[in-house]
């Protein structure tokens, strides 16, 4: 690969040699012209001393330092670049491969609750059933990701490194949810501009350690961001948000919602998603962030009833 650039240049230069010179060479001994890959200085003395041509030819050095110490093309033949696979195009993520589904987030009186199930799907196959899609970032922030799992893992790497870096000064400054959310949105928008997006939709949830002001914000693979009292990504945006909005329509409703009610609400929505989102899982992780920090847990959908399925063709055993 490293040889291609300049050696190609040499070849081109050779081909553009004045034809008169080539003719001279040909006239005297065709063998030398055919074998050489090096540039020759075109001088009158060179041309006139016909009988010395062969000798001069063999001691002419390659004037390009790039070629020094490398196998000579005239001895070993041109370098074969083909095995380096240079001809393959650079590929960007065109679609998510292993995916996570919805993330839910609800603000309440003095904090936020966020939840995401533990399934990672490969197409419609529930490939992994124990994947953690919530990441605690610092003391008062949790980031939940839907979409491509490997991109999520890369983002987790960035966030972990960011936090390590942030701790080096050992001062009283920390990154909280608004800062973490802005950082993620910048990363995602930058990648979108490279036409190589991180294929995720992400919720950042947090609470201010001083005021306990809850924070909840969304950002997707295009870098689009918005905030609301209740948010959901993926299928949850269609199935859960209508339910969530019935309970937390605005910030006033947030200030009246207790933590217990918010937890029940998320449980209800996760259950609906388990019933109706074919990419969802029965086990999910949740995190509650208040001014006191982060509490996390895991839960399974309870009190399931699949009675409705008896009425639907395609579910369970068919008795025709």
């Amino acid at each position: 690969m490293h040889r291609t650039g300049l050696s190609l240049g040499i070849h081109q230069l050779e081909h553009t040699q004045p034809s008169s010179r080539l003719n001279h060479h040909h006239h005297h001994h065709s063998t030398t012209t055919a074998s050489t890959n090096y540039l020759h200085t075109l001088s009158s003395s060179h041309l006139s001393q016909h009988h010395q041509d062969l000798q001069i030819e063999s001691i002419t050095m390659n004037q390009f330092p790039h070629g020094w110490g490398r196998p000579r093309d005239d001895v070993y033949g041109a370098y074969d670049n083909s095995y380096l696979n240079e001809s393959q195009p650079i590929t960007h993520t065109q679609r998510p491969i292993v995916t996570g589904t919805s993330v839910l987030g609800v603000k309440f009186k003095d904090g936020v609750i966020i939840a995401a199930d533990n399934i990672a799907s490969y197409g419609s196959l529930a490939r992994y059933d124990n994947v953690e899609r919530l990441l605690q970032v610092g003391t008062h922030t949790v980031v939940g990701a839907g979409g491509d799992i490997s991109d999520m893992q890369y983002l987790h790497l960035l966030l972990d490194n960011l936090l390590i870096k942030e701790q080096y000064p050992a001062d009283d400054h920390q990154l909280y949810a608004p800062q973490v959310h802005t950082y993620i949105s910048r990363v995602l928008y930058q990648r979108r501009n490279k036409f190589d997006p991180l294929w995720n939709s992400i919720l950042t949830a947090g609470a201010d350690p001083k005021t306990s002001e809850p924070f909840l914000s969304y950002v997707d693979l295009k870098g689009t961001t918005y905030s609301a009292p209740a948010l959901a990504t993926g299928y949850g945006a269609h199935l859960a948000i209508p339910i969530l909005r019935r309970h937390v329509a605005d910030e006033e409703a947030v200030s009246n919602l207790t933590q217990e009610d918010a937890q029940k609400l998320v449980e209800e929505c996760m259950k609906v998603l388990w019933y109706r989102d074919a990419r969802s899982g029965v086990k999910y992780s949740w995190a509650i962030i208040t001014k006191d920090g982060v509490t996390t847990g895991s839960k399974e959908i309870e009190n399931q009833s699949w009675k409705f399925a008896e009425m639907i063709k395609g579910y369970g055993a068919q008795n025709i």
């Binding site: 000064p169 001062d171 400054h173 990154l175 608004p178 800062q179 802005t182 950082y183 910048r186």
Partner: peptide, 10 residues
């Protein structure tokens, strides 16, 4: 990057 005014000490 963070929507944060840079901390003075930093």
């Amino acid at each position: 990057l963070y929507k944060r005014p840079v901390p003075v000490a930093r």
